[in-house]
Amino acid sequence: MVNITINGKVVRATEGEMLLDVIRREGINIPTLCQHDALEPAGNCRLCMVEITRTEWDGWKKYVTSCLYPVEEGLIVSTHTSELHEIRKTILDLLLANSPHSDVLQKMAEEYGLHKTSYEPNLEGDNCIMCYACTRICEVLGKSAISPVMRGHEKVIAPPFGEEPPDCIGCLACAHICPTNVITWTDENLTRTIWKKKFELIACEKCGKATISRDFAEYLIEKRGLPKEYFNTCDDCKRVELAQKMGALVDKAKEVAL
């Protein structure tokens, strides 16, 4: 265990733990876009920047991305100075310049007193902030169906050759993790379309509701060793089934007790 100081308060933390996790555990709110508990920290959005110093640094301080900074004994951290406010405001300003239509960014910028970007807005820009959350989660899931393509201002997140990604299983992880909701998909009847690729959705045996894509189910069955029948019913029907089973058990227990 190590002792660090956050905004004047001494806090105990496990060595090697990332600063952001400790700060958040203390109930301090720091905005982030690219951070997700299912992902390794990447420091792509830069919003979690904090100020650090040590007593022996003699007044010298530096700014680090807290999601990537492992805690160490004697660290003195400030999370909400006026400089940090300006840093975060500038980052949001730049992000907003590139994605002026993003309601998520607009809302975050509002909190920093920014009603619109002070830079020339890229009106044709989409809402992607290149945080790579989508490509990282796809990799975590063992698929890596999408990736950054090209470089610099031409860079986009796309499947290989701009075609239907052969490795995609239609799990929607990329769309759900996207902090600015850029990745879109449609579910129509029992067909899901994402990245221009079509997937068959499994209909629940009991209620007929569409559940997950067949490709995703097969992947989970194979990878996680789940029973084949697991995805035949939807979560709601599974819950009802479980409740009934539990109810029957309770009845039985009562009978036995009597």
């Binding site: 490509t135 990799e139 698929k143 890596s144 169906a145 999408i146 990736s147 950054p148 393509v149 090209m150 470089r151 499947p159 290989p160 050759f161 990604p165 052969p166 490795d167």
Partner: peptide, 14 residues
């Protein structure tokens, strides 16, 4: 290597 990564590297370098 996933095809997406091969494609990513191929388009990254000039």
């Amino acid at each position: 290597v996933p095809l997406s990564k091969v494609y990513s590297a191929s388009t990254f370098y000039a």
